[in-house]
Computed example of a mutant assay.
Amino acid sequence: MSPRRPIVLFDLFGVIARHQRPGSMDEMAALSGAPADAFAAAYWACRPPYDAGRWTAPQYWTAVLRRLSLTAGPHTIEELRLTDIDSWSRVDDRMVAYVQSLRDVAEVALLSNIPADHADAFLSAQPWLRHLDHVAFSGRIHAVKPDLAAFRHCIVAMRAAPADFLFVDDRDENVRAAQAAGMDGHVFTRLDELAAVLDTWLPVR
């Protein structure tokens, strides 16, 4: 039996990057002219096809506004788009450093649910991502976690076996899906706990 090829596959938001900036949903609601609660419901209800790359940003925002019985011109839609991108732009610098350090002992990859235009902005702002062994964004691969197709994409793209992967995500349903695809999985809560898991999981050098 050949030795396991260690690949640590990370989620982005809630692990390496922060969740959405507090207050940004209210800001976008104000731009749209909708009440905050109704706006948030429409924002999330319309998100899956945008995350999966089936809708462009203008199509997504038009659908959100239509759900709210509102319309807006191109300028407002672009304001909403840019505010949305900015709201997801923060990273945890300690996690970024840790992820980069792992490349000395394993291959490191990323699998994130993120629209294609958000992915472009994130790559521009965080060039270290380009040095990972593989980066898979849902808006580009047209598969959204916890769909097994998202995990299979990484397996095929990296020419690896499912058992080579440890998938790290802050959402239990995504970790369960990775395990169903044959990967090991860890539900992320904090860095020190993850480091302890990896100390055990990584092969002895």
Results as ranks from 00 to 15, higher is better:
A161R: 15
L166F: 07
A97D: 15
P22N: 09
T189E: 15
T56V: 01
P3C: 04
I114Y: 00
R171C: 05
Q126C: 08
F122D: 11
D147C: 03
F151P: 02
Y43T: 05
D92G: 06
R67E: 12
H153T: 03
E107R: 15
C154L: 13
L123P: 00
V91A: 07
Y60I: 15
S24W: 08
R152W: 11
W201N: 15
D170Y: 06
F167Y: 15
L68D: 07
G182S: 04
D169L: 05
E79L: 14
G73A: 10
P49A: 13
A177Q: 04
N113A: 07
A97P: 00
R21I: 06
D172H: 01
R152C: 06
A125N: 03
D192I: 10
P35T: 09
S89G: 04
P49S: 06
F122L: 15
A125R: 07
F137T: 05
P162D: 06
G14V: 04
V108N: 11
A195H: 12
D26R: 15
L191T: 09
R152S: 11
F10P: 01
V64A: 05
V99G: 06
H131P: 00
P115H: 04
N113R: 08
V8L: 13
E79I: 03
P74C: 05
D117G: 04
A97G: 10
S87L: 05
V96D: 10
V64P: 03
D192H: 15
A121N: 03
D51P: 00
W201Y: 12
R21V: 13
R205M: 08
R171Y: 15
V204M: 12
Q100E: 13
A157F: 02
M95L: 14
L12F: 12
G14Y: 03
P3L: 15
W44Y: 12
L148H: 02
G185W: 01
A97C: 09
A143F: 02
Y60E: 06
T189D: 14
V156C: 01
T56E: 05
A109T: 15
E78D: 12
H118M: 10
V175L: 10
A72W: 12
L82H: 03
M95K: 12
Q59T: 09
L70C: 02
Y43N: 07
N174G: 04
A17R: 10
G33M: 09
A181M: 06
L132E: 07
Y60W: 00
H134T: 14
L110W: 09
L65S: 09
E79N: 14
E107L: 14
